[in-house]
Simulated scan of single mutants.
Amino acid sequence: MLIRPSNKEYAAHFQRYVDLVPEGDIRKALEQSLKITTEMYAAFTEERGSYRYAPEKWSLKQVLGHVTDNERIMGYRALRIARGDRTQLAGYDENVFMSNASFDEMPLTAIVDDYAAVRRATLTLLSGIPDEAWTRRGVVAGNESSARAWIYIIAGHELHHLNVIRERYSAATGER
């Protein structure tokens, strides 16, 4: 059973994400956020997908592209650590990724489809890792972490961005 990691299983700056994940089955939390995110984005027009709440901020398309890129990276980290690979893994710069991405030129539906495919891959990854592997540790960006921590970080990172969308993109989402 995949249980919540202790705060000694990930770098301190990820605490804000892990804290957002509700108690209970992480698989259900990931399935629920898949539903919430796809439904939210399905309600956006192409024009809304390009909305930025400030000139230098990411568009709604870019936010979802970032969440998807991040999940790919975090899932890879979880896999490598769970499989016992002790090779140190590098961090990544989200702004470099965004400057080299073309989310604003992509159809919104393609970005949503990509996000959903990556989430389904994460969910199948969970079923293919034995219980004892989730507590294995590896080093990422100079910090020791467990495989299970990365799954919680994936879930919390998405919840963080859903909160940002609700708080700062309300002009585009219609939510108040």
Rank of each mutant, 00 (worst) to 15 (best):
G65Y: 00
G65N: 09
H66F: 09
V67D: 06
D69N: 11
D69S: 10
N70T: 15
N70E: 05
E71F: 01
R72H: 04
Y76L: 05
R77A: 05
R77D: 04
R77P: 07
R77N: 09
A78P: 10
A78I: 12
L79D: 05
I81H: 09
A82P: 11
G84Q: 12
G84P: 11
G84C: 08
R86P: 10
R86C: 06
R86T: 15
Q88D: 15
Q88Y: 10
L89R: 08
A90P: 03
G91L: 09
Y92N: 05
D93V: 10
D93P: 12
E94Y: 07
E94W: 07
E94T: 06
N95F: 09
V96F: 10
V96E: 15
V96Q: 14
M98C: 01
M98G: 05
S99I: 05
N100E: 13
A101D: 08
F103G: 01
F103T: 00
D104C: 10
E105M: 10
E105Y: 04
M106D: 08
M106F: 02
M106V: 01
P107W: 01
T109C: 07
A110H: 08
V112Y: 01
D114T: 10
Y115M: 00
Y115A: 00
A116W: 07
A117S: 14
T122L: 05
T122Q: 03
L123N: 07
T124V: 14
L125S: 08
L126I: 14
S127V: 02
G128F: 02
I129C: 07
P130R: 14
D131I: 11
D131H: 12
D131N: 13
E132P: 03
W134K: 09
T135Q: 13
R137C: 10
G138T: 04
V139C: 12
V140G: 04
A141I: 00
